[in-house]
Every structure is written in structure tokens, then in C-alpha cells.
């Protein structure tokens, strides 16, 4: 699925836009790395692409079709098309790995019993099959991020948005996470990764650099 921002304006404070007329195109099946120093709005771009934030002006397009700003259709797109991987521990800490991986599917109306095998297969794909019944708070940082990737990919999303997914990992674990994220997606899944790490960015098809904003203009 292609996803793009067209002439998007957004700011957290009124009259102080973070972006003005921002254009970004992520082609169908492509992987794009968003780079740039802290505070340049990498996470905000991801949130706009993931429809978690609404642009002040401009549009978000999925397969070249504008996405409605709110309502059931908007919620369905968010739930069915987009998955996230975050830098911070974005898993339920006291729950098992399997419970966490199942979350996305359950939110789509699946029954727990019916998806267990599917979730275990996803964990097998990221090398965590043996840890399926372990509590999240007993895993290492690398294992947690791979569990996040498994949770993200088990729903077969059309867009994967990853916010500094390797930010707290060493180089070896970073590569394991990237292998899982880029290698296990199906062909048409687009991936957008916000990262500081040039090695991670180099694994992507495109690199987009965001520069620090001079007030009102980028």
C-alpha cells in the first residue's frame, strides 16, 4: 500500500506550525527511513502517516485516496491497515509474549483460541518461539523489540510505522530486529522507520532527512 502526505501543515502550538506544505510519498512495498536530529518531527511525521494526528491542513493519502479525518472508516483503516513498532517498551509488561502478539488480532475481532497458532508462527518468525509463554518483563531489550515486530507483523499490516525501533539496542540486536521487520513483511507492505542510526537507514530503500526548523519555514 502506498501512503503519502500531501501539502500537510501541522503544529502542536497554534500559529507555530512544525511543518508547512510537507510532501512525502512512500510507494507500495517500499521501506523509507526518516532521519534527522531530535526535535525535527520524525515521530510527528509517523503519527501523521499513522492517522494518530490530524493535519491542520493538507491530506493523508492511502493508495492515492484521501483518508477521512474521523469516523468509523478512519478507525477501520487505523485498525486494519497500520501497525506500529515503538522505541519504548510498547508491550503489556505483566502479560505473556503470546498475549502481546495477539493484541492486534484481538482488536480486529479475532477469538483468542483461533489465533494462537498464528501468533506462535509469528513468534517463530522472529526467533522467539520458545519464549511465547514468558512474561514480557523477563525478556531482554532485543527480545522485546522482536516481540514488538511479531505483534506488528502478525496482523499482516499494509503499512508498518516504526519509531526508533532499534534506539535502545546494540548493533547485533538492531540488525536482528531489522531483519525481522523487513524480511517478514509481505511484498506490498510499506515500512517507514524513524531512526538516528545510519546502519538502520541504510537497510531501507529510501532515506528522507528532516532538518531542524527555522521558525515558520523548514
Amino acid at each position: 500500500m502506498s501512503i503519502s502526505l500531501k501539502q500537510v501543515e501541522f503544529g502542536y502550538v497554534r500559529d507555530r506550525p512544525l511543518f508547512e506544505a510537507l510532501d512525502l510519498v512512500v510507494p507500495d512495498g517500499a521501506s523509507v527511513a526518516l532521519m534527522g536530529p531530535s526535535g525535527t518531527g520524525k515521530s510527528t511525521v509517523l503519527a501523521l502517516l499513522g492517522l494518530l494526528l490530524t493535519p491542520t491542513r493538507g491530506e493523508v493519502l492511502l493508495d492515492d485516496l484521501p483518508v477521512p479525518r474521523a469516523g468509523p472508516h478512519h478507525r477501520r483503516i487505523v485498525a486494519e491497515s497500520i501497525s506500529w513498532v515503538f522505541q519504548t517498551v510498547s508491550l503489556l509488561p505483566g502479560r505473556t509474549v503470546l498475549d502481546n502478539v495477539a493484541l492486534g488480532l484481538l482488536a480486529r475481532g479475532a477469538r483468542r483460541a483461533a489465533i494462537e497458532q498464528q501468533c506462535r508462527a509469528a513468534l517463530d518468525g522472529v526467533g522467539l518461539a520458545d519464549l511465547a509463554d514468558r512474561k514480557i518483563n523477563t525478556l531482554s531489550g532485543g527480545e522485546i523489540q522482536r516481540a514488538c515486530v511479531a505483534r506488528c507483523l502478525v496482523t499482516a499490516p499494509r503499512v508498518v510505522l516504526a519509531d526508533e525501533p532499534t534506539g535502545q539496542l546494540d548493533a547485533a540486536n538492531s540488525m536482528l530486529v531489522m531483519d525481522a521487520m523487513l524480511g517478514l513483511r509481505n511484498g506490498s507492505t510499506s515500512v517507514v522507520i524513524a531512526t538516528h542510526d545510519p546502519a538502520v537507514a541504510a537497510r531501507c530503500d529510501q532515506q528522507v532527512k528532516l532538518t531542524p526548523m527555522t521558525y515558520g519555514r523548514r
Binding site: E80, L92, G94, R95, D99, A107, G109, R111, R112
Partner: peptide, 20 residues
């Protein structure tokens, strides 16, 4: 499709157990 109410209830129950 969205959460089934029974699964949502189980989720709430498990969340309570997960943080004793």
C-alpha cells in the same frame, strides 16, 4: 471488525492478574 466483548472482558481480567 473490532474487539469482541467477551475477549475484551478476558483482556481486562488478565490485565488485573498481570499486575498483582
Amino acid at each position: 471488525m473490532s474487539w469482541r466483548l467477551d475477549e475484551l472482558s478476558v483482556e481486562a481480567f488478565r490485565n488485573a492478574l498481570a499486575a498483582p
